[in-house]
Simulated scan of single mutants.
Amino acid sequence: MKLCGNILHLEGCCDYKSSKKFKFTSIPSKSQIKIDCSLLEKMDFSFAIFLDECLKNRGVSYELINANPKVLEIFSLIHSRKDFQIQIHKKNLLHRLGEWVCQKWIGFLDFLNFFGLFVFALLRTLFNPKLLRFRSLLYHIHTSGFKALPVGIVTCAIVSGAITLQGVLQLQKMGVPLASVETMAKLSLREMGPFILALVIAGRSASAFTAQIGVMRITEELDAMRVMGFDWYQFNILPRFLALVIAMPLLVFVADGASLFVSAVVIKLQTGITFAQYIERFYENVGIIHFWIGVIKSPFFGAAIALVGCYRGLEIEGNTQSVGKYTTLSVVNALFWIIVVNAIFSVIFTRFNL
């Protein structure tokens, strides 16, 4: 490209790379030029768009001379584009609120669809147990449940020790250090064991379920299963759901033992109450109902974790960025629903004086 007076000469093959060699600042702004295409051999569409935008940004009007029909057609298409006339309107608060409500409503309907298909697959499996993928169930019990046991036990033990220490200090000030035995034991059995363990499993298994199913969606494995006539829920959702529902009560039993042991050690170190006294006081004042309350809640925790993790996995789109987005979202949602389920059970048990 060469600029001679008010005539811009286009020469040879003009593409997007060749446009970078020309300085458009040499063209006076708010001027009028003519573009001579007599020596032009070839022009691509990207160069024409670039030239048109650069000239318009400087307020320069132009006219084509000696142009062949192909070049004229390219510039006619550019001038007929409507995207130059699009005006971006700022969204006000009401508009954004409406969009948010609409998105949440669509998400709720999608979850209802997912949950309905899941319930159908679950009932069909209960009436026909041969449909259950037993090997897959055992695999997920091992990977999602028992492999999380070490970190779950350590977490429950640390939290139990910290809360017991604070509780013992307060009860000592009140002059009733012995009351710390039944108080901390009931708290460990009802809350710290099942609840803290559920939080650990949610962070570990919900994210794993979402990532696994999401990758299957990206690699089109789920579409291949549908083409072959296999049911997603039968192969991917049910084994994960049943695995956590079965494994959670077993894990809670071990987590309760770890919480009680650490609680007894902290009480002994702080108050001098021996293990024999602890066991005797525990036997006299802590009923078996407190253990069962924690066990009863645990399958519901596992169900919430599995459903959230699998649902978010099916929401993942065909790109890797959505894997990180929905994996994070699944952990947050799982933690939220664990807290909600625990609060519901607390209200119910309190209502029945349990």
Rank of each mutant, 00 (worst) to 15 (best):
V101Y: 01
S205Q: 13
Y311I: 03
I279F: 13
V154K: 04
R81E: 14
L269D: 12
S346H: 10
P28L: 00
T164P: 07
L178G: 01
Q87P: 00
L137Q: 05
V60Q: 01
I88G: 02
L132S: 08
E99Y: 07
A179E: 11
T320L: 12
A121W: 05
L260D: 07
D52Q: 01
T125W: 08
M248I: 09
F75E: 01
Y283R: 13
V227P: 07
A48D: 03
G313I: 09
L307N: 01
G313Q: 03
N128I: 05
S263F: 12
I7A: 00
L269E: 12
N319L: 11
E221F: 11
F352V: 15
A202Q: 07
G98V: 07
S298V: 02
V254S: 10
F336R: 05
I293H: 10
Y278V: 01
L123Y: 13
I86D: 05
I305N: 01
V119E: 07
G116D: 12
A67E: 08
A121I: 08
A306G: 04
V332C: 05
I289C: 05
I339C: 15
L126A: 15
F352Q: 15
S144L: 08
G214M: 09
A198C: 04
L187N: 02
T271C: 09
L171Y: 05
P69G: 00
W337A: 03
T320I: 14
I106Q: 10
F349G: 14
H95Y: 12
N92R: 02
L109F: 09
N285F: 06
V101H: 03
F336W: 11
F111C: 06
V254D: 05
D83P: 01
A185V: 13
R190P: 01
S46Q: 09
A157I: 06
A255R: 04
F253K: 09
A148N: 04
F118I: 05
R124V: 06
L51N: 00
L171V: 14
S76K: 12
Y139D: 07
F261N: 04
F300C: 10
T210V: 10
T350K: 11
K70F: 13
I78Y: 02
V340E: 11
A255E: 07
K297C: 08
